[in-house]
Design a protein around this nucleic acid. Structure first.
Lengths: 213, 213
DNA sequence: GTGATCCGGTACTCGATAGTTCCATAAGGG
DNA sequence: CCCTTATGGAACTATCGAGTACCGGATCAC
């Protein structure tokens, strides 16, 4: 990506800190009041800028929302590799649970859902911005699990991912159930048992029927 | 429940059909435009009534939303009882998938989610109105499965219910993944395998006993 | 009939807010 | 210095829609 060609070369340059502050304030306000519920004047106040500074950077409120969500990306996810499929899955799940339980994405998501249905670009931004990374991390761990003989060879990956993530979002968005370690470990355990190979006597890892958890 | 004491005894009575038409039109418009996005004048137009008729029945738009959602209840759910835990679970899941794939609740839910976070009464109405019935039907089927020896005795019911329902809502609200029979049967199968008793020696002699502790 | 409340429909009030404009001033390049 | 664009802040415009008021007419009880 080259430098933007339409950037003005003369005059006072834009305050780079304001860019960040505006996006950040917008995200917080979306979390608090919803995509349609927040006011641009509140964004300005919280970011410590004038409304003009916002509209100089973003055509409209919709544009601002889109840019804010697009700017929200997970930090890089480290794919755990302890040698134990159970440990690796549980680690990723605990991370996810913690993320949605206590930080911005968790407070944001309920308010983004409805907007996603009517704005495909926003939906795509949410999915690709910070779902896809975790999904691919999980995919990799599952793939290794298959190779290791912990999971059956014909695992329905799409289903497995949705079973890992679904209950988390279900509780977050609908039931209000607890986002805790028990959830993370419960679904991990379920995936391991549910997608275990048919014949436990199989191949390398030499896992006996006897399990210790 | 007695007759409402504040009903007027004299004058022209209210048109009972209008009550229904208003609630129905409101639900459709919530599905189309969202809880905050629809206009009362559109409700009036679609229901074939005047705005006055709406405000005579409901104090405010918020009140109208609440009443509409509260009026949305599942038809009675018949708990299947074929003798097969797998068949019973799968039947309930196929029903649920079909419901959210093609009818009003499925189009409504994405738009209700954000409103639920800021209005606890609405959240409660959604949960008790048409989640609880399906959850208790599933609970009963799971309970029978435990008695029958198809599921382990210490099954985490809350987790099981969220694993059954979570992926469905996850796809509906977030990923946009397919709501189909494969999903219904996939989660059913996973629950059965994942929560299978440790000792397969029980009951119908399909599996051979490996270990006895 | 009389009186009360309903009906659908239209017109209105009025608060809220997205987006614009203007100001005095700051911060770049030449 | 000069020119240009940016700054925060305040004032302004224009739109939208909830809620109200009123219309002529309908439908109940008495």
């Amino acid at each position: 990506m080259q430098a933007k060609p339409d950037e003005p070369r003369i005059g006072r340059p834009r305050d780079a800190r304001a860019n960040q502050a505006i996006l950040r304030a917008t995200l917080e306000l979306i979390a608090e009041r919803g995509v349609h519920g927040f006011r641009t004047q509140d964004v300005a106040a919280r970011a410590g800028v004038g409304k003009g500074a916002i509209y100089r950077r973003h055509r409209s409120k919709d544009d601002l929302v889109m840019a804010s969500v697009a700017a929200l990306v997970d930090e890089e996810i480290v794919i755990p590799d302890t040698g134990s499929t159970r440990a690796d899955l549980a680690a990723l799940m605990r991370e996810a649970v913690e993320l949605y339980r206590s930080s911005l994405p968790g407070r944001l998501m309920p308010n983004l859902v409805s907007a996603m249905t009517e704005r495909p670009d926003l939906a795509q931004a949410v999915r690709e911005g910070f779902l896809i990374r975790r999904r691919s991390a999980l995919t990799e761990v599952l793939r290794r699990g298959v190779e290791r003989g912990d999971l059956r060879r014909d695992v329905d990956l799409e289903l497995a991912l949705d079973v890992l993530g679904g209950p988390l979002f279900y509780r977050l968005l609908i039931t209000g159930g607890p986002l805790d370690e028990q959830l993370a470990e419960g679904v991990t355990e379920l995936i391991l048992r549910g997608f275990a190979p048919n014949k436990p006597s199989r191949a390398k890892g030499a896992r006996k029927a006897k399990e210790h958890s």
